[in-house]
Design a protein around this nucleic acid. Structure first.
Lengths: 197, 197
DNA sequence: CCGTTTTTATACTAAATTAGTACAATTATA
DNA sequence: TATAATTGTACTAATTTAGTATAAAAACGG
């Protein structure tokens, strides 16, 4: 009884679904289209997922897990706070972690099966797990001690939004420059000691 | 008998359709959704358009006309060639003119009613009209004389594609810089006389 | 204010799309 | 070559969408 999640086709479906959902949102993508794009027959799809909603949950889960992993890796790294912040902001800028608005909106507005609750539960869990890591990092001296980790986490979230802000981007000649600026802003307030180049 | 096209609701429908089609393509948008977003009742929609295909044609037409207008204005301006090229490239960069791939693809792949022919015909017409303008500008000395206008037009098309090219953008610290570079490239080959700052 | 026109909301039917299942044919696998 | 995995097709039921009719509500012009 090997895990279905390691299956090649399963992965393909998940990845294709992610792409399509990201672009068009949940409702606009039909299973048939998905199968076509994923080069998988309908039957194989139904072997893995009972319906589109469960697929969406799997996509969402996968994304949360992936984001969590990246986040943790950065937080646990043995690097100055400033460096960590830069990486986090950059990660958000790349959009690899952010969950598409189109997708979430459809996903969220479906009142039938408790998707809303599902999203909230997953988010809460991911959040608390992250906080634990932040606290460890704080104890190790990576971040300033007298600061609520919750605040740090929240700010870094907001930071992620800022780097994709159109009007803000226009103020800088390149996204990288904006990232640098934001990093400095964060680092000076957070770093236990030194400052930036 | 006033022209329907000057109607407020008509404009709203057209603009909303443009936005939605641009984002999601032709097929993924339902009339109902369109009406909701455009804050217009279904009945009003059917007052203006017999069906979605005719709406799509109108959207397409409008876009072509708009692009043509901008193009002409630039070409007719009393400015150095270099300046004109910059404006054209910038216009493409803004994407105001480009017709969304999502939209065109759906629009094009519909083999039923001759949408393909429709697009081709419109494009051909817009093209020849532009050429006329280019030739005039050439006669006035805005562009180098011994050069086929067709070539110029074609190159400027390609130029528009280049500024949205991801890998190319990464080579420059900002889109503006890329535009400048491209402008210079064009200007030195085209301009009847002087060179750039 | 009134009468007229425009717009909307609702409800409805027909047409089209989509979900999900069954099964024989094909392909990959060991 | 036997076995399991995958596909393609065809099908029905369920859902969505297109397009029309109609009465109520809103907007308008004098």
């Amino acid at each position: 009884m090997k895990d279905l999640r390691n299956n090649r086709k399963y992965q393909k479906i998940l990845a294709t679904a992610r792409d399509l959902f990201w672009k068009h949102g949940f409702k606009r993508v039909s299973i048939e289209e998905l199968c076509r794009k994923a080069e998988v027959s309908k039957m194989t799809f139904y072997k893995f997922f009972p319906n589109k909603i469960e697929l969406a949950k799997a996509v969402f889960d996968h994304e949360v897990q992936e984001g969590l992993k990246r986040f943790k890796n950065i937080v646990r790294e043995d690097a100055p706070a400033q460096e960590k912040i830069r990486k986090i902001v950059e990660m958000k800028a790349e959009g690899t972690n952010n969950i598409s608005k189109e997708f979430l909106q459809d996903f969220y507005s479906d009142r039938e099966l408790g998707l809303r609750e599902y999203v909230e539960k997953s988010t809460r869990e991911a959040w608390t797990e992250l906080l634990k890591d932040f606290k460890h990092a704080q104890e190790r001296g990576s971040f300033r001690g007298n600061m609520k980790p919750e605040l740090l986490f929240y700010i870094s979230q907001k930071m992620g939004e800022l780097v994709t802000d159109e009007t803000l981007l226009k103020m800088y000649s390149s996204p990288q420059e904006l990232v640098l600026e934001l990093t400095n802003l964060m680092a000076f307030g957070i770093s236990p000691r030194d400052q930036t180049t």
